[in-house]
Amino acid sequence: MKVVIASGKGGTGKTTVAVNLAWFLANCGRKVQYIDCDVEEPNGNFFISAHFSERIPAFVMLPAVDQQKCTSCGECSSKCRFNAIVRLPGNTMIFPELCHGCGLCLLVCPTKAISEDEREIGIIERGMGWGGISFVHGVLNVGEPMPNPLIRKVKEQGLADHIQIIDAPPGTSCSFVETISDADLVILVTEPTPFGLHDLKISVEVARARGRSICVVINKDNGIFRPLEKFLEERQLTITARLPENRKVAEVYSEGNILLEELPDYRAHFSSIAAEVFRQSENLMHSPMGVLP
């Protein structure tokens, strides 16, 4: 089962919820895998105390031109919609940072002078954390503009017989869509401020458009924030948990520690989130396309 923890706005406590939910489920005796898809700034490993046993370089396709076979006809350069190819007489140049790896140039080249090469865009690291949690994340190379291919490869590491807790990148653009594309449950973490609400609205819209089941966790709760309550009511969204605002939470987070170990009062909240996860997995079991557990 795939549970994505996401938030439009950064810093709402997405990682905190993901890590502690993983901790809670692992302590319930479930097989848990933590998948960190925030490949631009991966942090989950600090909290899960992951020890990596495997480093797998991640590649994307990059065209390579055989200048001997190339007739400088310019077909590839004129067809490439990303302007990644330049045709000079006797020298066809490829610009990897502009290439989307679509493979169209291979199709159009009349002399089959273009072949597929690979380019490293980051690494995938796999290992184990505390409580037998299986951990995987991707680290995008600095200066690399396109995270999506790496996110796709990180998700491919998902273990079907585990509950996959997937930490999504912040924002609501293509990398977020990529992360939630096949999620069984999307937990949206928000905070009771106009900013949290603004970004929550967009996240809900995207997740709904993708046909995902959604539930909402309000973090840094410090009393009713009317506009947020109104929005959730209108959209008929369930509030699965409200985590009270507390400076101690920020301190525990700053050290990379587990909230539920340091502040056991919060366990009741995570028990409700876990219950929602189990409820969704029940639904899955009864649906023909269901995946266990």
Binding site: E40, N43, F47, P145, Y253, S254, G256
Partner: peptide
């Protein structure tokens, strides 16, 4: 982040202010 939007925001700028917090992340 550090991806395409950040790269697009930084190229050709005059000065960067990094706002950080004292946490492991």
């Amino acid at each position: 982040g550090i991806g395409c939007t950040v790269i697009a925001s930084l190229t050709g700028a005059s000065f960067v202010v990094f706002v950080t917090e004292p946490t492991v992340s």
